[in-house]
Simulated scan of single mutants.
Amino acid sequence: MKSELQAKWWQKPLAKSVGLHLALVLGLFISTLSFWPKPTEIMLSGEAGLSADAPPPPPPAPVEAVAIDKQALEQRVAEIKKQQDDTRKAEEKRIRDLERRAKEAENSRTAEEARLKRVAEEKRKADAAVQASRQAAAEAKKVQEAEAAKARAAEQQRLAKEQERKKAEEAAKAAEAKRKAEQAALAKAQAEREQKAREEREQAERERMIQEQLAAEAEARRRARSQQAVTEVQRYTAMISDAIDRNLIKDESTMRGRTCRVNIRLATNGFVTSVNVISGERVVCDAAVRAVNRAGTLPMSADPDVYNQLKDITLTVAPEFR
């Protein structure tokens, strides 16, 4: 900035004023030289430089004419001096006016510079104040936003706690209602279990009595059937023995006093499915096996109880002789 001001020093009002004054003085000097009267040249007849063939000079002017010319010349010189004085005075006045205006301009410039400095300082202060105000406003806004955020967070926390409290109360109410319902259900279930237990005990007692009655009746029927079955088994056993004895080929010399025990398995219709010797004399056992096979089908009762006792029967074969 300093170099720029130094580079443009000629643009300042003072430099312009000095330059203008110099130009005016130079112009005045040149005008003075132009208006100065040239000296009158008088050539004498006897002076060197005149040729012998040259025509004679004119006769000299009268003395009065010379005096008139000199007076006119002096008057003209006086007029010129007066003009020059007037011009000089006017120029000096113009220069003074220019200097005054230059000084006033310089003073105005100085005042303007001072005013601009004051304005710039005031603007700087105002800008600083505005910046400080903006910064303070920004800080205040930050503080306000922080306080608002804290308030929102506190409100959210309060609402969350309120919701948690409500949820806890609702959960407590639900738990109490559930507990009461469970107690009622337990009491009802206990009553139902007790009622069911009483009914089951009563039913069990009734069933026990019925079972006892049925068992007694079944036992009575079993004894009756058993007695009947024993009789039937004895009767069919005798019939099976008689059928084997009818098909038995006897030899008194080899079989007298001798026996054989055989196991016979029968189908429901009395058909012999197998016959096996358990023990005894061989001659009797061989004859007994042949007699069973020869019979093929032995007597059998249609009663299942009798069949269950006769389907797998063991007999002792003892040939009898008269």
Rank of each mutant, 00 (worst) to 15 (best):
A140R: 05
T237V: 04
K141W: 11
L186W: 07
E4R: 11
V66W: 14
P304D: 05
L298C: 04
I42L: 05
A102Q: 14
T231S: 13
E64S: 11
P319C: 08
A126P: 01
L20D: 12
A189H: 05
F321M: 08
K167S: 09
R222A: 12
E122M: 01
A191Q: 12
A128L: 13
Q234V: 14
V143P: 00
T268G: 09
R256F: 09
V77A: 10
N308Y: 15
A114E: 11
K123C: 00
A174W: 02
P59D: 10
R322M: 04
E194R: 11
Q183W: 09
Q84K: 03
K82N: 12
A65K: 04
Q11W: 03
V143L: 13
R235D: 13
E252V: 03
V262R: 02
E219T: 02
E104F: 10
V306D: 07
F271C: 09
P57E: 00
D53M: 03
T254N: 07
K89W: 12
T259I: 09
S45Y: 01
R96N: 15
A189P: 00
S34A: 15
A111I: 08
A114W: 01
V77F: 10
K103P: 00
L44R: 07
T316P: 00
R221F: 05
V63C: 02
I240K: 04
A146M: 07
N263Y: 05
I249W: 03
E121P: 00
V25H: 09
A287L: 03
A224F: 10
A187N: 04
E113R: 10
R198Q: 15
I249D: 06
E169K: 06
A267K: 14
Y307T: 05
E113G: 10
R223K: 15
E217R: 13
R100V: 13
E74H: 08
A184F: 00
M209F: 14
A15R: 02
H21D: 13
N269H: 03
A154L: 10
A187H: 03
A295W: 02
E106D: 07
L159F: 05
N247A: 12
M300K: 04
D53R: 01
N269M: 04
I95D: 11
I278D: 09
V77D: 12
A7W: 03
E202G: 07
A126Q: 11
E41T: 10
E122G: 04
I313D: 02
E207W: 12
A160C: 00
Q163T: 12
K161S: 07
R290M: 04
A291P: 11
R256Q: 08
E205Q: 09
T32H: 07
S301L: 01
R258A: 04
E182Y: 00
K311C: 07
E91G: 14
I210C: 02
S133E: 15
A181D: 08
Q156N: 09
R261A: 11
I244K: 03
P304Q: 06
Q195W: 10
V230Y: 09
Q156P: 00
A197Q: 13
D69H: 04
P13G: 09
E106P: 00
E164A: 15
L298D: 02
P304T: 07
A168E: 13
E74I: 11
P319H: 08
L24G: 05
Q228E: 14
R179C: 02
N293L: 11
F271T: 15
S253W: 00
I249K: 11
G270E: 06
K2E: 12
I264Y: 05
A105L: 14
